[in-house]
Design a protein around this nucleic acid. Structure first.
Length: 424
RNA sequence: GGAGAGGUGCCUGAGUGGCCGAAAGGGCCGGUUUGCUAAACCGUUGUACGAGCUUAAACUUGUACCGAGGGUUCGAAUCCCUCCCUCUCCGCCA
């Protein structure tokens, strides 16, 4: 969430910036400012009363020690009076704090200055393109048909075991999946990211920390018996590693990568978008996360975009990078670049990765801070990006099967054995 | 799931109702001493939200925080309740 300090500094600027995201409830900002004023007044009142209670209690202790029981009893009555008077103030203070908090979490992150204006995906701006769009031979079919033909992903059996949207990888399909995970993780660790294998369920505090709660509650699988959520991305457990932590400046930047299956209910999705592996309830993903100094997050974002771009280049996929416009960005993001790969068979661009800078929005919730060289405590910035969602792998799969570089398949198996770079 | 022992500051660890935001040791940082290093000695060393002063910082000051949340009490790290976590033993175990 946004820092209260920042909002108070220039409420009008906040309103202007939020307008870029087409966030219209700017009355919220005013409410927050006045709730905070209210909170301060109540706190002052409450603190002053408590101070009186504390000093009276100390006196009572001393009077008791001296044996002056009657005086002590008198003071006790006084304290009782103070506490009665305090009760409504304390209640009001707690209510005001809660209201303030509830309003604060409703404000999305401010878009960075780099965010292009616009409302819909059509307004996103292409930043760069790379690779060559292949010309498919006559009679080419999309991946969901190829998968069937080669019997490497079995949706029907997945649906039988669990339900629709839970693919069952089989034989070479399973092996390719494993090989790609290895390849992407190795690619990331070679760039200095520390590898993690996180828990696949998280508690409420973690889901709240990265902003999935309360925003995305209905989109996560929930285990009521233990109050756990299945992770929708490893960003959640990985970013939460440092929740409530005071970092040393020298520890920054922190670069983490993790593979995990991801679970999403995708409630409300339907139609062509959900065909094949385009959108499923369980998919595998390798994620990169960085925690940086605030003044470094912009260049870190560029570096992470370049990193994912290189990865796509090694796969020789036709890609483009989009700067998401204000209206298409996610709630918590300040700047998002999407990667799309062109599927010649589906004849459309498919999102394969998304690299976002959250600035202090997530870390403010999670209280991930560091001491700067001037001794000031500051929030770090958090960024993350997917370096591989399932779609990407199956576009690769398409290449392996359709293109003459059929040896590529073997190439990935070599990767499993050697754990090394992509061999050309 | 049952029984027991625990959870205190950066770390170890003391603290069973007031003088405890918290002993002691270690670490860290600053200083003195010193060819250098080490050692020794002195000092400092939490977070959050307020108030005062201030351009600001520094500083002074209030409140809260000893796993989390409630309760008892004039007063809680300390007593009671619930929950979470760690360790030991027993049970269960696809």
């Amino acid at each position: 969430m946004l820092q209260l300090q920042v909002i108070k500094q220039d409420p009008n600027l906040i309103k202007e910036r939020l307008a870029v995201k087409h966030f219209t409830a700017t009355g919220l900002v005013d409410e927050i400012v006045s709730l905070d004023e209210e909170r301060k007044k109540l706190q002052l009142e409450s603190d002053n009363t408590l101070a009186k209670v504390n000093s009276a209690s100390k006196e009572i202790g001393m009077l008791m020690a001296k044996g002056q029981k009657d005086d002590a009893e008198k003071r006790k009555l006084e304290v009782a009076g103070l506490k009665t008077a305090l009760q409504p103030i304390a209640d009001q203070l707690a209510a005001t704090e809660k209201q303030l908090q509830d309003k604060l979490v409703l404000l999305p992150n401010l878009p960075s200055a780099k965010v292009p204006p616009g409302k819909t995906p059509a307004d996103n701006v292409v930043v760069r393109e790379g690779g060559t769009i292949p010309v498919l031979p006559e009679g080419s079919v999309p991946h969901w048909d190829l998968i069937k033909k080669y019997d490497i992903v079995d949706f029907e059996t997945g649906a039988k075991i669990t339900g629709s949207g839970f693919p069952l990888y089989k034989g070479k399909g399973a092996k390719l999946q494993r090989a790609l995970v290895q390849y992407f993780l190795d690619f990331n660790t070679a760039a200095g990211y520390t590898e993690y294998l996180p828990p696949l369920m998280v508690n409420e505090a973690s889901a709240y920390g990265t902003g999935q709660l309360p925003d995305k509650e209905g989109q996560m699988y929930y285990m009521p018996a233990d109050n756990f959520y299945m992770i929708p991305t490893s960003e959640v457990p990985v970013t939460n590693i440092y929740r409530d932590t005071m970092l040393k400046e020298a520890e920054l930047p922190i670069k983490m990568t993790a593979f995990s299956p991801c679970f999403r209910r995708e409630a409300g999705s339907f139609g062509a978008d959900v065909r094949g592996l385009n959108r499923v309830h369980q998919f595998d993903k390798v994620e990169i996360v960085q925690l940086t100094r605030p003044d470094k997050s912009e260049e870190t974002h560029d570096a992470m975009v370049a990193h994912v771009e290189q990865l796509l280049q090694t796969l020789e996929l036709p890609y483009r990078i989009l700067a998401l416009c204000g209206g298409d960005m996610s709630f918590a993001s300040a700047l998002t670049y999407d990667f799309e790969v062109y599927s010649a068979a589906q004849q459309k661009w498919l999102e394969v990765s998304s690299v976002s800078n959250f600035e202090a929005y997530q870390t403010n919730r999670m209280k991930i801070r560091f001491k700067d060289s001037d001794g000031k405590t500051k929030l770090v910035h958090s960024l993350n990006g997917s370096s591989w969602p399932c779609q990407g792998s199956w576009l690769v799969c398409w290449r392996i099967i359709r293109q003459p570089m059929a040896s590529g398949c073997r190439r990935y198996y070599i990767l499993i054995l050697e754990g090394q770079k992509l061999i050309k």
